[in-house]
Protein backbone atom coordinates (compact mmCIF):
# COMPACT_ATOMS: atom_id res chain seq x y z
CA UNK A 1 0.00 0.00 0.00
CA UNK A 2 1.16 3.50 -0.68
CA UNK A 3 1.80 5.49 2.43
CA UNK A 4 -0.19 8.59 1.50
CA UNK A 5 -3.53 6.95 1.98
CA UNK A 6 -2.94 3.80 3.94
CA UNK A 7 -2.52 5.77 7.11
CA UNK A 8 -6.09 6.90 6.91
CA UNK A 9 -7.49 3.44 6.37
CA UNK A 10 -7.51 0.30 8.37
CA UNK A 11 -7.68 -3.12 6.84
CA UNK A 12 -9.59 -5.98 8.43
CA UNK A 13 -9.87 -9.54 7.38
CA UNK A 14 -12.86 -11.40 8.75
CA UNK A 15 -13.51 -14.85 7.27
CA UNK A 16 -14.39 -14.33 3.60
CA UNK A 17 -14.23 -10.55 3.49
CA UNK A 18 -11.52 -7.97 3.47
CA UNK A 19 -12.64 -4.65 4.87
CA UNK A 20 -10.90 -1.40 4.21
CA UNK A 21 -12.40 1.10 6.60
CA UNK A 22 -11.68 4.75 7.07
CA UNK A 23 -10.10 5.96 10.26
CA UNK A 24 -11.86 9.32 10.04
CA UNK A 25 -14.00 10.24 13.02
CA UNK A 26 -17.67 10.19 12.21
CA UNK A 27 -20.87 11.28 13.86
CA UNK A 28 -23.30 8.73 15.18
CA UNK A 29 -25.96 9.85 12.73
CA UNK A 30 -23.58 9.51 9.84
CA UNK A 31 -22.49 6.11 11.00
CA UNK A 32 -26.00 4.90 11.38
CA UNK A 33 -26.91 5.94 7.89
CA UNK A 34 -23.80 4.36 6.47
CA UNK A 35 -24.26 1.20 8.41
CA UNK A 36 -27.75 0.78 7.10
CA UNK A 37 -26.23 0.77 3.66
CA UNK A 38 -26.73 4.30 2.44
CA UNK A 39 -24.94 5.10 -0.77
CA UNK A 40 -23.66 1.60 -1.29
CA UNK A 41 -22.07 0.82 -4.61
CA UNK A 42 -21.72 -2.65 -6.01
CA UNK A 43 -18.55 -3.49 -7.89
CA UNK A 44 -18.56 -6.60 -10.02
CA UNK A 45 -16.51 -8.48 -12.59
CA UNK A 46 -13.41 -8.04 -10.54
CA UNK A 47 -10.52 -10.16 -11.78
CA UNK A 48 -9.00 -12.70 -9.45
CA UNK A 49 -5.68 -10.99 -9.19
CA UNK A 50 -7.14 -7.58 -8.40
CA UNK A 51 -6.44 -6.49 -4.83
CA UNK A 52 -8.44 -4.16 -2.64
CA UNK A 53 -5.53 -1.76 -2.85
CA UNK A 54 -5.99 -1.50 -6.62
CA UNK A 55 -9.58 -0.52 -6.13
CA UNK A 56 -8.92 1.88 -3.30
CA UNK A 57 -6.29 3.69 -5.28
CA UNK A 58 -8.92 4.56 -7.86
CA UNK A 59 -11.83 5.03 -5.51
CA UNK A 60 -10.21 7.61 -3.28
CA UNK A 61 -9.71 9.91 -6.22
CA UNK A 62 -13.38 10.83 -5.94
CA UNK A 63 -13.87 11.28 -2.24
CA UNK A 64 -13.11 9.77 1.12
CA UNK A 65 -14.14 6.18 1.19
CA UNK A 66 -16.05 4.98 4.19
CA UNK A 67 -15.66 1.29 3.60
CA UNK A 68 -14.76 -1.23 0.95
CA UNK A 69 -16.01 -4.75 1.48
CA UNK A 70 -13.94 -6.94 -0.75
CA UNK A 71 -15.00 -10.56 -1.00
CA UNK A 72 -12.24 -13.13 -1.14
CA UNK A 73 -11.93 -16.87 -1.37
CA UNK A 74 -9.76 -19.12 0.72
CA UNK A 75 -6.60 -18.40 -1.12
CA UNK A 76 -7.26 -14.70 -0.58
CA UNK A 77 -8.10 -13.96 -4.17
CA UNK A 78 -11.11 -11.98 -5.22
CA UNK A 79 -14.44 -13.68 -5.51
CA UNK A 80 -15.36 -11.19 -8.21
CA UNK A 81 -17.35 -8.59 -6.36
CA UNK A 82 -17.08 -5.93 -3.70
CA UNK A 83 -19.10 -3.21 -2.05
CA UNK A 84 -18.00 0.38 -1.77
CA UNK A 85 -19.36 3.23 0.35
CA UNK A 86 -18.23 6.81 0.50
CA UNK A 87 -18.25 8.84 3.66
CA UNK A 88 -20.37 11.36 1.90
CA UNK A 89 -23.49 9.54 0.84
CA UNK A 90 -24.08 11.89 -2.07
CA UNK A 91 -20.84 10.92 -3.72
CA UNK A 92 -22.60 7.80 -4.88
CA UNK A 93 -24.32 9.58 -7.74
CA UNK A 94 -21.06 10.93 -9.03
CA UNK A 95 -19.31 7.64 -8.52
CA UNK A 96 -21.92 5.78 -10.52
CA UNK A 97 -21.29 8.18 -13.33
CA UNK A 98 -17.52 8.23 -13.44
CA UNK A 99 -16.04 5.45 -11.40
CA UNK A 100 -16.32 2.84 -14.10
CA UNK A 101 -14.33 4.90 -16.54
CA UNK A 102 -11.82 5.71 -13.86
CA UNK A 103 -11.35 2.01 -13.32
CA UNK A 104 -10.93 1.51 -17.02
CA UNK A 105 -8.20 4.10 -17.09
CA UNK A 106 -6.48 2.18 -14.33
CA UNK A 107 -6.71 -0.96 -16.49
CA UNK A 108 -9.30 -2.53 -14.23
CA UNK A 109 -12.38 -3.75 -16.01
CA UNK A 110 -14.72 -3.41 -13.12
CA UNK A 111 -18.39 -2.74 -13.47
CA UNK A 112 -20.00 -0.23 -11.16
CA UNK A 113 -23.63 -0.52 -10.15
CA UNK A 114 -25.86 0.77 -7.48
CA UNK A 115 -26.15 -1.81 -4.78
CA UNK A 116 -29.56 -3.37 -4.37
CA UNK A 117 -28.97 -3.29 -0.70
CA UNK A 118 -31.50 -5.96 0.00
CA UNK A 119 -32.04 -6.09 3.69
CA UNK A 120 -35.41 -7.68 4.21
CA UNK A 121 -36.24 -11.31 4.42
CA UNK A 122 -39.57 -12.96 3.94
CA UNK A 123 -40.37 -15.90 6.14
CA UNK A 124 -43.24 -18.33 6.02
CA UNK A 125 -44.42 -21.69 7.25
CA UNK A 126 -43.08 -21.53 10.72
CA UNK A 127 -45.41 -24.08 12.12
CA UNK A 128 -44.65 -24.62 15.71
CA UNK A 129 -43.75 -21.14 16.92
CA UNK A 130 -46.10 -18.30 17.60
CA UNK A 131 -45.23 -14.81 16.39
CA UNK A 132 -43.69 -13.71 19.62
CA UNK A 133 -41.52 -16.79 19.79
CA UNK A 134 -40.41 -16.05 16.27
CA UNK A 135 -39.64 -12.53 17.38
CA UNK A 136 -37.46 -13.88 20.15
CA UNK A 137 -35.77 -16.61 18.13
CA UNK A 138 -34.86 -14.15 15.41
CA UNK A 139 -33.26 -11.91 17.94
CA UNK A 140 -31.05 -14.77 18.96
CA UNK A 141 -29.87 -15.20 15.41
CA UNK A 142 -28.89 -11.66 14.58
CA UNK A 143 -30.03 -8.22 15.52
CA UNK A 144 -32.67 -6.73 13.25
CA UNK A 145 -34.74 -3.62 13.07
CA UNK A 146 -38.26 -4.68 12.65
CA UNK A 147 -40.50 -7.67 12.31
CA UNK A 148 -43.80 -7.48 10.47
CA UNK A 149 -46.25 -10.24 11.19
CA UNK A 150 -49.00 -10.72 8.68
CA UNK A 151 -51.76 -13.14 9.41
CA UNK A 152 -52.65 -14.08 5.89
CA UNK A 153 -54.99 -16.85 6.91
CA UNK A 154 -56.39 -17.47 10.35
CA UNK A 155 -53.54 -18.69 12.51
CA UNK A 156 -51.09 -18.67 9.63
CA UNK A 157 -48.50 -16.01 9.61
CA UNK A 158 -46.03 -14.59 7.19
CA UNK A 159 -43.12 -12.56 8.43
CA UNK A 160 -41.03 -9.81 6.99
CA UNK A 161 -37.84 -9.08 8.82
CA UNK A 162 -35.97 -5.87 8.27
CA UNK A 163 -32.31 -5.86 8.99
CA UNK A 164 -30.03 -2.94 9.36
CA UNK A 165 -28.11 -3.60 6.20
CA UNK A 166 -27.51 -6.13 3.54
CA UNK A 167 -24.47 -7.56 5.27
CA UNK A 168 -26.36 -8.44 8.41
CA UNK A 169 -29.31 -9.72 6.47
CA UNK A 170 -26.97 -12.02 4.56
CA UNK A 171 -25.63 -13.47 7.74
CA UNK A 172 -29.13 -13.96 9.07
CA UNK A 173 -30.20 -15.51 5.79
CA UNK A 174 -27.38 -18.02 5.94
CA UNK A 175 -28.10 -18.89 9.53
CA UNK A 176 -31.77 -19.31 8.75
CA UNK A 177 -30.99 -21.60 5.88
CA UNK A 178 -28.52 -23.68 7.78
CA UNK A 179 -30.40 -23.87 11.05
CA UNK A 180 -33.78 -24.65 9.71
CA UNK A 181 -34.47 -26.78 12.73
CA UNK A 182 -35.34 -23.82 14.85
CA UNK A 183 -38.21 -22.79 12.63
CA UNK A 184 -39.31 -26.19 11.48
CA UNK A 185 -38.67 -28.25 8.42
CA UNK A 186 -41.06 -26.43 6.16
CA UNK A 187 -39.56 -23.03 6.58
CA UNK A 188 -39.58 -20.86 3.52
CA UNK A 189 -37.19 -17.92 3.28
CA UNK A 190 -36.45 -15.55 0.45
CA UNK A 191 -35.10 -12.10 -0.08
CA UNK A 192 -37.50 -9.20 -0.48
CA UNK A 193 -36.86 -6.11 -2.50
CA UNK A 194 -37.29 -2.91 -0.63
CA UNK A 195 -39.95 -1.56 -2.96
CA UNK A 196 -41.87 -4.79 -2.91
CA UNK A 197 -43.01 -4.14 0.56
CA UNK A 198 -43.22 -0.73 2.08
CA UNK A 199 -45.90 -0.61 4.66
CA UNK A 200 -44.36 2.64 5.70
CA UNK A 201 -46.61 4.32 3.16
CA UNK A 202 -49.34 4.86 5.68
CA UNK A 203 -47.48 4.95 8.93
CA UNK A 204 -49.98 3.66 11.42
CA UNK A 205 -53.18 2.18 10.13
CA UNK A 206 -56.18 3.14 12.17
CA UNK A 207 -56.86 -0.36 13.34
CA UNK A 208 -53.41 -0.67 14.77
CA UNK A 209 -52.65 0.05 18.38
CA UNK A 210 -49.22 1.30 19.26
CA UNK A 211 -47.95 -0.22 22.43
CA UNK A 212 -45.21 1.74 24.03
CA UNK A 213 -42.19 -0.17 25.14
CA UNK A 214 -41.60 1.48 28.43
CA UNK A 215 -45.20 0.79 29.22
CA UNK A 216 -44.92 -2.78 28.21
CA UNK A 217 -42.14 -3.28 30.62
CA UNK A 218 -44.09 -2.38 33.67
CA UNK A 219 -47.61 -2.86 32.50
CA UNK A 220 -48.42 -6.41 33.35
CA UNK A 221 -51.69 -6.89 31.63
CA UNK A 222 -52.23 -5.48 28.19
CA UNK A 223 -55.68 -4.28 27.37
CA UNK A 224 -57.87 -7.15 26.29
CA UNK A 225 -58.31 -6.65 22.61
CA UNK A 226 -56.38 -4.93 19.90
CA UNK A 227 -56.94 -6.11 16.38
CA UNK A 228 -53.41 -5.24 15.35
CA UNK A 229 -50.63 -3.82 17.36
CA UNK A 230 -47.02 -2.82 17.23
CA UNK A 231 -44.31 -2.00 19.69
Amino acid sequence: MEPHWTNNYCKHHVNGTLYVITCLPMTAVQLMALESGAGEIFLTRIKKQTTPEDIMRVAIQLDDVYMLRFKIDFSFRSRGYAYLQYVNVDTMERALAVLQSLFRQAKLKIQVRQSNNLKSLFLKDVNHLNPLQVYEELRLIWRYDKLYVLEYKPLQYAYIIEYRNNYEATIAFNVLKSQMGIFGNNLFVIWVNKDEHSPVSHPVPNCCAVLLRYQLNWMNIIQPYYPCFMF
Partner: peptide
Protein backbone atom coordinates in the same frame (compact mmCIF):
# COMPACT_ATOMS: atom_id res chain seq x y z
CA UNK B 1 -32.24 -1.66 20.88
CA UNK B 2 -34.87 -4.32 20.62
CA UNK B 3 -36.26 -4.74 17.15
CA UNK B 4 -39.68 -3.42 16.40
CA UNK B 5 -42.66 -5.68 16.18
CA UNK B 6 -45.74 -5.15 14.09
CA UNK B 7 -48.62 -7.53 14.13
CA UNK B 8 -51.32 -7.43 11.51
CA UNK B 9 -54.14 -9.81 12.00
CA UNK B 10 -56.05 -11.59 9.33
CA UNK B 11 -58.27 -9.16 7.50
CA UNK B 12 -56.41 -6.07 8.54
CA UNK B 13 -56.09 -3.59 5.65
CA UNK B 14 -52.36 -3.65 6.12
CA UNK B 15 -52.30 -7.37 5.56
Amino acid sequence: NAPQFEFHRYGCPQT
